[in-house]
Design a protein around this nucleic acid. Structure first.
Lengths: 341, 341
DNA sequence: GTGAAAGCGCTAACAG
DNA sequence: CTGTTAGCGCTTTCAC
């Protein structure tokens, strides 16, 4: 059995005794083709081993059957639930996903977007709202259906689906203060070019300030999005400064690293120190201690973002942005506790 | 600034005062075009906002500039390092990646492969060696450059890059027995249609048997690849049966869940029980206790797999499979300890 | 070094 | 419901 890279729609048409146009129709408008001829075509297809050529289809300026996704990184758990949900939903509607990573670099993102457009993706999904002017400009000029995932923004230029990260920050800060904590450290990654982290942090800080709580500089930790860096940062804090009674971390990965740090220093979480995350990653509920965090519903975001994008692709591209706010919710678990003042 | 989805190579040619053929050449064979005209063309490109149409290029039966990747899932950390490394390397060489997930279903995989081929990907990367006959057959018939990642296999039908999972299993079993353990439980996921897990498990069991150690059925745990399920399974074991002194888990995620289970039951790891993983995920070194595991070098695998695939794409597609074995290595850490008999 | 012309594989009118 | 025809945007001979 050998080598037939090259059977085309004409070969199929001949074999089935119809015209190429009919074969094409049986793919794209099957209802316009007689059941019986469709059957013959299908037989011819499997006999010849024909596989459609989407490139030739895409060239009509019509459907390429692809959408593009640009994420900061695939390298950790942060986006995996989201991407999986988005991907599955798009696939259900016959789309294949072109995935690229920009390593949190917005200039890179522009280049990647261009390359996605070279492939004539029918739509693009991005993370968050921090994008270069060039990127926004290109999306606008080419009139590409686009959706931003993971952060809701009231007046966003483009459609978006996500939780309100600022609210998430405020909610977890509220939770912590209601447990009686006032000596609070915060741990966030670089918030430049990362609106999700920035909004969370703003939410936390503003809420605490409102309650009259000010974070001293040595309790304002800057860390990477990794367990190991978070652990190191927390160790530094615990070893060199007096201890806060609580740490609010920018996400669950950071929280996890900090819990390990505390444990490795013989501290009990939450008895000696409370630690919170944001995001509710899949393992946060099952860890020991389980992590108090904020649910951001990545599955829902991914799925809804896919729907929004599909709507744009199939419908009115000039319509005003669709914005879907996914509710966030504090999940109180074992890593925090009431403090006795 | 509005709406120019449709500038094509001809518009650019006119603007630059050359023929379309020359514009095309300046992309694909820049050396065959006078520097000065190339400059004019580039200027015309940026003035018109032209973006190449890869579909039109792909239709010539030549380069589509894409490769396909089929993974079981994006939903957890298991493959993320690997994918990231693969993706970055392919991108460096100008390829964009079409990603799909089959949810560990090999029939689905065949469908996904077909859809990737519809997009005329120039090459395909798969995980492991368990694939349906149809899948192998299709790859063969279409003569698609292909690489299998994550599991080395001596006589594989297709090129592969990975560690030897059986060896990984044997190595960690060796490590555990050398620490004096004989009362050992194992925890693996469903090994059907998953050669990586199967090989690991075989490696463990065979080694233990050779040492005269037999795993009783109630210490032979079957779990999902998730922290939560692993934790539940371990709890069941700890609550209902006498305790082993060690648990060998199929990967680090499972090990993590089991450590949490032990801790939640007031057991100390490793003093009361030793627990090992396989895979050395990024957080395994920083967790508390850090996890004794086997390094599988996902970054190296991803990068090398990309190289192998590129070689096939650019070179001799009929050549015998290239097989690269990436060494595996036990990382002894805090989650295991010597037992006093 | 560059242009003219002939397709690549498919789809969308338009007839019939 | 089906066939004919005219391209989609680009690349590639083959001349010049």
């Amino acid at each position: 059995m050998k080598k037939n890279t090259n059977v085309d729609i004409i070969d199929v048409a001949i074999k089935a005794g119809v015209s190429p146009a009919t074969v094409s129709r049986s793919f794209n408008h099957p209802d316009k083709v007689l059941m019986s001829t469709r059957k013959r075509i299908e037989k011819a297809i499997s006999q010849t081993g024909y596989i459609r050529n989407r490139a030739a289809q895409a060239i009509q300026g019509k459907r390429s059957g692809t959408v593009g996704l640009i994420v900061p990184t695939l390298d950790n758990a942060i986006f995996s639930n989201l991407i999986q949900a988005f991907s599955v939903e798009m696939r259900k509607h016959g789309f294949t996903m072109l995935v690229t990573t920009n390593g949190y670099d917005l200039n890179d993102e522009y280049t990647l977007l261009r390359s996605l457009l070279e492939h004539r993706v029918e739509g693009v999904a991005l993370i968050g709202h921090d994008h270069s002017d060039e990127t926004y400009n290109l999306l606008d000029i080419r009139n590409v259906p686009v959706v931003s995932m993971w952060n809701y923004k009231e007046n966003s230029k483009i459609s978006c689906v996500g939780g309100e990260n600022k609210e998430a920050g405020a909610e977890i800060a509220k939770h912590i203060t209601e447990l009686g904590h006032t000596k609070i450290a915060v741990a966030f990654p670089n918030v430049k070019e990362n609106d999700r982290a920035r909004d969370r942090k703003i939410g936390v800080i503003e809420y605490l300030n409102k309650k009259g709580i000010i974070i001293p500089e040595y309790w304002n930790i800057k860390t990477e999005y990794s367990v190991s860096d978070a652990r190191n940062c927390a160790i530094k804090l615990l070893d060199n400064y007096n201890h806060p009674t609580a740490i609010i971390a920018g996400n669950d990965v950071i929280a996890r690293g900090m819990i390990y740090a505390a444990q490795s220093r013989g501290l009990n979480v939450p008895n000696d120190i409370s630690i919170t995350g944001i995001g509710d990653f899949s393992s946060s509920e099952s860890s020991f201690p389980s992590i108090t965090t904020v649910r951001m519903r990545p599955n829902e975001v991914g799925k809804k973002a896919a729907s929004v994008l599909l709507e744009r692709i199939n419908g009115d591209r000039e319509a005003d942005p669709t914005r879907i706010r996914v509710s966030v919710e504090v999940k109180a678990r074992e890593s925090t506790k009431l403090i006795n003042n």
